[in-house]
Every structure is written in C-alpha cells, then in structure tokens.
Write a protein that binds this DNA or RNA. Sequence first.
DNA 1: TAACGTAGGTGTACGCCGTACACCTGTCAA
DNA 2: TTGACAGGTGTACGGCGTACACCTACGTTA
Lengths: 238, 238
Amino acid sequence: MAEQVETLRRTPLSRDRILRAAVALADEAGIESLSMRNLAQDLGVVPMALYKHVANKDELLDGMIDVVVGEIDPPAPDADWKHAVRRRILSARQVLRRHPWAPLAIESRNMATPAVLAYLDSMIGTFRAGGFSADLAHHVIHAMGSRILGFSQELFDASRRAGRSGTTNPDPPAPLPPEIAARFPHLAEIAMAASHDDASAVGQGCDDQFEFEFALDLLLDGIERLQQQGWTSSHRPR
Amino acid sequence: MAEQVETLRRTPLSRDRILRAAVALADEAGIESLSMRNLAQDLGVVPMALYKHVANKDELLDGMIDVVVGEIDPPAPDADWKHAVRRRILSARQVLRRHPWAPLAIESRNMATPAVLAYLDSMIGTFRAGGFSADLAHHVIHAMGSRILGFSQELFDASRRAGRSGTTNPDPPAPLPPEIAARFPHLAEIAMAASHDDASAVGQGCDDQFEFEFALDLLLDGIERLQQQGWTSSHRPR
DNA sequence: TAACGTAGGTGTACGCCGTACACCTGTCAA
DNA sequence: TTGACAGGTGTACGGCGTACACCTACGTTA
C-alpha cells in the first residue's frame, strides 16, 4: 500500500513527461526501438496508460518533434540578417545532432507541427527585417529546405544507421572494396581525395560540419546576391 | 490440374516481377500499404514465396529504389556541364514525381543502392569533365544533397500525405484558419502573397516546380561562380 | 527409364506492433 | 456521503515481418 502510493506519487505521468521520455528513448536506443510498449515500460506504466495523454503514436511523434525544435536557440539579435540566419541554423544543427532520429521523423510527418511553424515564422521574420520582399523570402525558405532546420538530408547517411547516437565511433573507415572502386571510378576518386584523414565510403570519411557549412554559405551567398540586385519572381535576371 | 499448370505458367514469379509489382503497389496505394502480405496477394502468391527472391523487406525496398533510379534518363551529351546537370536533375525529378513514396524511401535507407551509386558516379563524372577538381566536385555533391536526385525534402510536403499519387487534385486550398495566421504572421503573409493562384497552407498553394528550379539554379549559379574563381578547400575566398 | 537433388511455392506459427474497449480506483466537488 | 471523472489496468484483436518445416515439379544423370 505505502509502496503503491509512493510509486504513483513518484512521477505522476503527464504528456510532457511522456514526450521527454520518448525523446530520451529515441536518442539512446534509436527511433526503431520507440514503441508504445517500450516507452511505457521505461515509464513504469502499462502501454495503454500513454493513450490518456497522447492520442496515438503519430501525435507522440509530433510532440517529440516539438520538444526537439523547442531546444533551438531563439534568434540572436544580430544586425545582419545573414549572420542571424547562419547562427540560428548552426544552432539548430547542433540540436539535431543530439537527436539523430529527428530529421527523418520531421520529414516523414505530413504536416508541420506548431513549433516548426513558429520556427519558420521567426526565420521568415529575420529575412523580412533584412529587407527581403515576401516573395523572395518565400522562395528562399523553399530553397533552404530542411537545411533551415540544421540538417541536409544526404542520399545516404552513415550516422543514421541503426539509429544509435552519433557520438559513438564511426567504425574503422574500411577502405572501399576495389570492385566497387572499379565500378564507380569517380566516386572512388572523391573518396580517396577526402582531404583530411583517411577516406572510406563516401559520406563517412568526410567532415559533415564542413560540408554543411559549405552548402549553407553557398546558398546564403547566392541569396544575398539576389536580394542585393532586387530579384523579383516576375523578371528574374539569369 | 490443367488450371493449376496454367496458374503457375502464367507468370512464374521472379525478383524483377516482384520489384515491379511492389513499385506499382506503392505508387497506387501508398508506401504504407506495401506489406509483404499485400504484395504477395497482388501477385497471387503466398507471402513466404517472396522470400525465395528477396532476402527481406529492406532488400525489397532497396530493389524498388534501384528500379526507380533506373528510370532516370542517361546523361545527355551536353557540351556544358551546367546544362547537362540541370537537365538530368530535372529528368530525375520527373521520375520521382511518378513515385511519390521514393524520396522518403531513399532517405530512410542507410546505405546507397548500386543504382544510386551509379547515378552519383556519372553525375560526378559530368562535373569532372566540366573542369571541376575532385575536391570541389565532392563538396558540390554534398551541397546538392537529395536535390541531385530530383527532390528537395520539404519540412512538410502535402503531396506526401496518405502516399496517394500526386496527380490527384490537391484538395480545395482551405484559406488558412485565422488563429494560425495570427500566431504566425510572417507565414501568413507569405501564404497570402503566393503570387499565382489562390493561396493556402504554405507548400500547398505554391508552384513546386518553380520552387525546385529556383533552388536548383541558385545552387548551380553559386557552384559555377566557385568553379570559375578556382575555389579550393584550403583557402576559400569569403 | 528410374532415382534424386534442387529450385521454388506453401502452411503454420511466433513474437512484435498499435490500439479499441471495458474495467477499476483514487480524488475532489457538491 | 455521494457521485462524477481523471487516469492507470487488463485483455484482446488484427496486422506485421519472417523462421522453419514441408511439399512438389522439374532437370540431370546413371
């Protein structure tokens, strides 16, 4: 009896506690281990108890996304739109690196969650304050795509495998079997040329952060150029 | 007996036939309806029969991706790398629009399939032939991300919902509930300003193809500029 | 022609999943 | 004191991927 009360009292289940436990579970064990049953067990509760706080698993995922997006730093008071956007996107990137399951989860939802909408809204606000027309800001948001949330979906992403946290060592960089190198010579060349340390399969031996900032700056520079030359969708200078 | 023989003879199951049936099923009913059981039923066969031709469902998905990627036009013999890349990417985009489930499937695989590798390899080859250093080509491939395969993962994508083919009418463009507009003024402004026809929730009232080409040209123009000024990763001009 | 290995389709079964639905119990307002 | 109700429980159902044992028809070889 006393222990029962204590058990109940210890942590009286709530939507927020469920969401945070779900995020923790996905972080540690990978998104594929996030089942209502596993989550309930982590919370010391029976699976159906969760449904008193979240409608279903989809809504749980939406909530998890909002938790993650809520971790992103608020916009920095930066005079320059370009630096403001850049800093915030890099902050978002840091957050998403703590939650490697989040990019795929975000992409697989078919509607944006409130926190994502709020994030986008404030990002658009930064562009508008920087003198962008609504028109250009619109296209720019599209052009940034998921990069605006700090991740660039690669065609293949080693850090995504098995859903394990990205902090574990990324395997010995096996040096690309020769029959593959023969079939895909250009890929092989690039894999070999990966400047920094020893190369491996593409996307494994190269510096994610560098690649991300390279693409980000490429886009930001192009955007800046468009804005400076007064781009409008009606007559775009080519 | 005679009918049995006929049933067997009619279409004697093969990896290729399975893959094509799977692609058709995903195209028509959505990727979420693609189960080994449904697929087997479509093929008039018992579920376990499939496992004589594909190792498991993951391998089935890999095979489906290869089928789709194999539909992309071969590289056009274009004098100019920029036009060659642009044309091929837009071809890829057309293919992927026939298979709306494919982007998510591609992103969720943790290793590239042979057909994707071949596609990338030939794309890199185009850059190299255009005078790009292996180094720059490498970063450029990363910067293009999934866009190189003809899709830009949006944060939310109406065409992805329910997995139905994108050719169906995209719902009456419900004019964005006012309480949402109040909470996200910048989003609302952009949604309203969607130049062409009537606007709605972001990503629904705007011209996907235009947004895609906008981003593509933004990247290609920036890439061209880098290449012309002899960019190298050691001392990047900022 | 008879025996046999083998490729490929079948049937059953297991453990996992999300979740509908009926139930119980403790708390608090009237 | 009572009774509504919020919230945790137990059971059960249908669907999933797939392991495993089986059967059967065919091509090969003696």
